[in-house]
Nucleic acid binder design. Structure first.
Lengths: 348, 348
DNA sequence: CGCGCGGATTTAAGCGCTTAAGTCGCGGAC
DNA sequence: GTCCGCGACTTAAGCGCTTAAATCCGCGCG
């Protein structure tokens, strides 16, 4: 066993010696096989596998000044939206032969910064970032180093960066319209934290849908937060009303709230979902599964966002720094109908 | 705008010139600040931030022959088990100042191989791999390059590697014992594909729990596969029986089957869960959320596994190749009680 | 028989960093 | 007054690869 010390991995030089050729030839065999004669190629190949040679990427990228990978820093892998984004980005990266390296910030700003720095030092071709709030500093640092970067789901002024956003107004619109199409007329929009940009946009979308529909009325119910419990509280409040006073269709601004409402309604036997009240959530997050009924929801299409981001990044990577104009692409959300809303009436 | 070409990022040499010192001093400021005088340090620091210098990690690791990151290749990020593993590994890596790079194979063997190769070429300190079936080739290649690696959730003979496994027998045991403790006496174990090692182990665990308990009987129900529909089919079959002939507690070998059963029972009004029949799933996967009732399940403790793996990896990284003895650590699963089983009787 | 040619290979100059081995001054000990 | 030691810095030799330029060599041609 101690017979094979195998201290350091073999280098190209070792391969070259082993094959009786020069180091440049080995490099050529690997990178431009067409420049090397058949016979030599064979020998070198043999030497490579005999020695178990693996090209040292550090040296390679030092010599060429390029990398074949891009980095992606995700705010929270526990949230399926980000997993979807990773998928989409993967797709996009694959299409052009780039490797996607993932870093999970796990909701920790420091860690997000760590990864940003790591990717910066690793001189990746570019970075995809789904930033947490207050990520400005890290973003600007990266930008100032001239590294291509695109932001996902971060709608903030004054950012000089390509960005992929979801059309949150459309999210609200689709949710409300679905309710209306399934014959709900007393619509409620349940939300908190209106200063939060996505919340506000969804509200506007809901309002528009109701207005357009005519014949439907909209009630806006405020919550303290955006969590399950806030939904439960709303359900409780609804329980105090007479049946006629209750909405017959609810758009909750998050899946969690939606599930909370459904659970509250269900547990206290206040109303049947969707029999008495239909509920639509927003986001369609796989980790929000706390409710008693499968939730109809408007999904954010993380995969599309990821892919769009990868394409944007590529665009920036391929353009000389001066030339590039930052763009924002807005991804349209989609409705996923499940059990928490009545099926659309036949023939509609 | 074209005034600042900022072609390539500044190098240490640039910083050195800018600060009027030698390149070695710059390096020292960064790596061994105690060897440099206060004043010089200041100057260099200033130059660094003025130029926006970022150390080139490729060059660094080429020069030192080390990296500060380890790679992790996950079979499928859509499966929360792997997300949990990533978390755990992250934890473990953080603790010792290593950076964890993630690659998502997304159930694609080629992609898994790609990532393995990428990490190999990047000379990461080591690799954590949750392999898919038939990953032998990639594993051996990596091993033969002498790169430290530990496997997660891959119980296969003839692998020369540290491994982290879950105690699947315990999984079955815990599930069945929970049912028994909540007063179920006619236990059913629902599973398919017994040739699949985890399935078989869980079966053995269930059998042991029932045997130990005494007074309970075990029925083993076979399914074709391990999916939701297979559970639905079982529910249907149960519907044909008289109530007395039905089990009062079911261990399903996967969450999906468990949810299928619950859904089938519920939809066809065959039985109440947990009123008439309690159900326990295995795995506790967040993406399995198709059921009508929150599932009690035995969870695989992905986070613990990830952390254990990171520790094992560290152990191997710190030991001279010859010295290291491969080990296998087995993580004990845990029970998560939710709504699909009756609460334990008071006082038990 | 000498030339020019072109394909096959080698030479050598870096890429940006680390680090062992100097160099340089300067103050204190003898 | 000389010399040593020491702190603060610089020199220079790589790390393993890429690549442009140089070299080599066998051939067909005039």
């Amino acid at each position: 066993m101690p017979a094979t010390p195998k201290k350091t991995n073999p280098s190209m030089l070792d391969v070259a010696r082993h094959a009786g050729v020069s180091i440049a030839t080995v490099s050529n065999v690997i990178n431009r096989p067409e420049k090397v004669s058949k016979a030599t190629t064979e020998q070198v190949r043999a030497a490579i596998s005999e020695l178990g040679f693996v090209r040292n990427d550090a040296a390679r990228s030092l010599a060429t000044g390029t990398t074949s990978s891009i980095g992606m820093v995700l705010a929270d892998l526990d949230n399926s939206l980000f997993v979807d984004m990773a998928h989409g980005a993967q797709q996009g990266a694959d299409a052009i032969g780039l490797r996607l390296l993932l870093g999970n910030a796990a909701c920790d700003l420091d860690r997000q910064d760590d990864y940003l720095r790591l990717f910066d030092e690793a001189r990746v071709g570019g970075v995809l970032l789904s930033p947490m709030e207050d990520s400005l500093a890290g973003i600007e640092r990266m930008r100032s180093h001239g590294r291509p970067m695109v932001l996902l789901n971060y709608d903030q002024d004054g950012i000089e960066c390509c960005t992929v956003l979801v059309d949150n107004e459309e999210v609200g619109y689709l949710a409300a319209r679905h309710l209306i199409e399934t014959d709900c007329r007393r619509i409620a929009f349940v939300a908190g934290r209106d200063y939060y940009q996505p919340v506000h946009a969804r509200r506007v979308g809901v309002q528009r849908a109701v207005r357009e529909a005519g014949g439907a009325v909209l009630e806006e119910i405020d919550t303290d937060g955006l969590a399950f419990e806030d939904g439960v509280a709303v359900a409780r409040a609804l329980g105090e009303r007479s049946t006629a006073q209750r909405p017959d269709g609810i758009v909750a601004v998050t899946d969690d709230i939606a599930n909370g409402i459904a659970d509250g309604l269900h547990a206290a036997l206040i109303a049947e979902v969707p029999g008495d009240i239909s509920i639509v959530g927003c986001e369609d997050n796989r980790s929000a599964r706390s409710g008693p009924v499968a939730l109809t929801a408007v999904q954010l299409e993380g995969a599309k966002m990821g892919q769009a981001a990868a394409e944007l990044l590529l665009e920036e990577m391929n353009n000389p720094a001066g030339e590039h104009r930052h763009r924002t692409v807005v991804v349209r959300p989609g409705l996923v109908v499940r059990a928490s809303t009545a099926a659309a009436p036949l023939g509609v």
